[in-house]
Design a protein around this nucleic acid. Sequence first.
DNA 1: TCTATATATTGCAATATTCGAATATATAAT
DNA 2: ATTATATATTCGAATATTGCAATATATAGA
Lengths: 124, 124
Amino acid sequence: MMPRATACPDVVGDLQVFKASFFKALAHPVRIGILEELVRREMSVQELQSALGLEQPLVSQQLSVLRTNNVIAGRKEGVIVRYRVRDRLVGDLLDVARAIFNNQLTGTQDLLKQLRKQSRRPLS
Amino acid sequence: MMPRATACPDVVGDLQVFKASFFKALAHPVRIGILEELVRREMSVQELQSALGLEQPLVSQQLSVLRTNNVIAGRKEGVIVRYRVRDRLVGDLLDVARAIFNNQLTGTQDLLKQLRKQSRRPLS
DNA sequence: TCTATATATTGCAATATTCGAATATATAAT
DNA sequence: ATTATATATTCGAATATTGCAATATATAGA
C-alpha cells in the first residue's frame, strides 16, 4: 500500500500534509547536499557520488526519495542517468533558507564561515 | 544527552546537518499550519488552538519543536504566551514553497484550488 | 554470451518521530 | 489556600526513517 507521507491527526488538511512532505523531502543532510549540486547543474549519479564523496547506493537511495517527491527528475542517456531539479524555484528556496541560516548562525563561528563560503548560485 | 538532529554518515558536513534539521522542523503538517498563522501575526497558544482546531497539548508540543529549532520565539504576558516567527524570511520561504507547490500540483485539481485560495500574505 | 560499468532496489536492525492521555507548572483571582 | 485558566512536559505504543550490506537490473562492448 502507498506509504502515507505522515501519520497525523485527520483534523489537519491534505494540503498541509502535502506541503509537509515536500519539506520532509529536503530534511536530510545528504539530500540537501545533492540539491545544492543539482541546483547549479544537471549531474549524473556518478558525478554526485564523487562531488559529495558518498557511496553509490546511498546516493541512489536519496535520489529516489527526491524523485518520489517530484523535487528532481532524471533522464536516461544510455547507461547513465542525469538528474536535474524539476523547478528552478528550488534554487530560490535554498537561497532564502541560506539567508535564514545566516541570520540564525550568529555565534557558531565555524558553521558561519562555512556558510559564507558557499557561493550564492554563481552559475545558472 | 543533547539529541542529535539526525543520525547520519559522518562523511556529511555539520552545515548540511544543520540545514537539514531546519527543514525537518518545517516538515510536519501541524507545524506548517502553525507557521502559516504566525507568519501573518503574533498569536497566543489559545488563538492557534482555535484557528487550527487542534488540542492544546498537540499545539504546545509542536510549538516546542519550532522553538527548539529557533524558528519561532515566545514571550510571556502573564499567563499567556505569544509566539512569533523569529525571522521574517520564513514568510518568504513559505511563499516560494507555495509557488513550487503551485507549479507541481497541475493535475490534482482539489489541492490546487485550496492552494490558490490561500491569500498571498495579505497582512504583514 | 560474458564482462564491465552505471544505477536501482531490497532487507533489516537501529534509531527517531508521532500523537494522545495523563500530568505538571505557572499565574491570577477569590 | 483554593480554584480556574493558560501553557508545558512526560510517557509509551505505533509508526517512519535511516544506513549499511547485499543484490538486482540495465546497457554497452568484446
